[in-house]
C-alpha cells in the first residue's frame, strides 16, 4: 500500500542525481517537522523521500573570509549554541530561541524552514535582514539568489524540482552584527507567529547608514520592507522619524486575518515591533558613538 520510497544518500551529488531523475516526485527530508504531518494530511503523495540528514557536506556553521556560511542542515539549536552566530549575529539567535520549542529545534533545519516558505518562517526573517545569499544547485546548474528574491508565495519558492539549497551565506559586516528580532505569538513557546520583525542597522554619526527591515506573518511570504528601508536611509535618527517609519511599516505590510489575529492587529503590531527593534539598536548604536 505504501506509495513512498526512501533513499538515504551519502553525498550532495547523489541527492542532485536523484532529484534530477525524480523531479517533482521527490521530497527532501531533513528535520521532518513538516513532511510527516503533510504526509498524514495527504498533502504529500507518492514521493521518493530523500533523507539528507546523513550528508556531512550540508552541515555546519563556518567563517569563510568575510562571510558566514550556514549549511542548510544546520539545526535551529545549532544557531543558538554556535559561538559564531550567538556572539555576533544575535538577530539569528534571537529568532532561533523563539522558534517552535527546544525539541523541534533539535531537528528542524534552516534549509527546511526556508523551503517550506511559510509566511511565518521565523528563521527567514533575520536571514532577510542579514541579506543572506542562498546557494542553489542542481545537476545542470549552480546559482545564487538573494533570500529576498527566493520566496514566491505561501509554500512556494523559486527552487526548481531538481534543485536544492546547498548553503546560506551572509556578510560579516557591521550592519549584520547589529540586529534585533522580535516575535509575537499566541503563547511563549510552540507558537506560530502572529507577527515577527527583524531589523539590522548601521548608524554613522546619528545617521542611518544602512538599514534592513524584514517581517513575518504579515504578507504572503517573509518580506523585506524596502519602502520603509529607503525612507530611513541616510536620515538622522529622531523620534519624529521613528514615528513616520512606523507608519511606513504599517502601510507596507500586507497581512491577512486568520484565527490567530486580524489584519488590523498585525498591521499595528508590525509597526510596534519595528519601533521596539529599531529603538533597541539605535539606542545602543548612538550610545556607542557618544562614548
Amino acid at each position: 500500500m505504501s506509495l513512498f520510497k526512501y533513499i538515504s544518500p551519502k553525498t550532495k551529488d547523489e541527492v542532485l542525481e536523484i532529484l534530477q531523475k525524480e523531479k517533482s516526485n521527490a521530497c527532501i527530508v531533513a528535520g521532518c517537522s513538516n513532511v510527516l504531518p503533510n504526509i498524514r494530511d495527504k498533502e504529500i503523495k507518492a514521493k521518493v523521500l530523500i533523507d539528507i540528514t546523513n550528508i556531512e557536506q550540508l552541515k555546519g556553521i563556518y567563517q569563510k573570509e568575510d562571510k558566514i556560511f550556514l549549511g542548510p542542515l544546520t539545526t535551529i539549536n545549532e544557531l543558538i549554541y554556535s559561538d559564531i552566530t550567538s556572539k555576533e549575529y544575535k538577530v539569528l539567535t534571537q529568532a532561533a530561541q523563539e522558534f517552535a520549542d527546544p525539541l523541534v529545534r533539535n531537528t528542524a533545519t534552516i534549509g527546511g524552514n526556508l523551503v517550506t516558505a511559510s509566511p511565518a518562517a521565523d528563521i527567514a526573517i533575520p536571514l532577510l535582514t542579514l541579506d543572506a545569499l542562498i546557494k542553489i544547485e542542481s545537476t545542470r546548474d549552480k546559482r545564487e539568489v538573494k533570500l529576498k528574491d527566493f520566496f514566491v508565495g505561501p509554500g512556494e519558492t523559486i527552487l526548481q524540482d531538481d534543485e536544492m539549497i546547498v548553503g546560506i551565506e551572509f556578510e560579516q559586516s557591521d550592519v549584520n552584527k547589529n540586529g534585533y528580532f522580535i516575535k509575537i505569538g499566541q503563547r511563549k513557546a510552540m507558537a506560530i507567529s502572529i507577527a515577527t520583525v527583524a531589523v539590522n542597522l548601521e548608524v554613522r554619526q546619528n545617521k542611518i547608514n544602512q538599514i534592513r527591515i524584514a517581517a513575518g506573518s504579515v504578507a504572503p511570504t517573509p518580506v523585506r520592507l524596502t519602502g520603509a528601508e529607503s525612507f530611513l536611509k541616510n536620515k538622522e535618527i529622531n523620534d519624529k522619524l521613528v514615528e513616520e517609519a512606523i507608519d511606513r511599516v504599517r502601510e507596507e505590510v500586507k497581512p491577512i486575518s486568520d484565527i490567530r489575529a486580524s489584519e488590523e492587529y498585525r498591521r499595528y503590531i508590525s509597526g510596534l515591533l519595528f519601533k521596539r527593534a529599531f529603538k533597541k539598536l539605535a539606542d545602543s548604536s548612538i550610545h556607542q558613538f557618544t562614548n
Binding site: 520549542d101 503563547r187 511563549k188 510552540m190 507558537a191 506560530i192 484565527i259
Partner: peptide, 16 residues
C-alpha cells in the same frame, strides 16, 4: 471548526 490541532487550539506551555 477552524482550530482542529494543537497549533491552532492553544493551551498554556510551561513557559507561559
Amino acid at each position: 471548526t477552524m482550530t482542529p490541532s494543537f497549533s491552532e487550539y492553544i493551551i498554556p506551555t510551561a513557559a507561559d
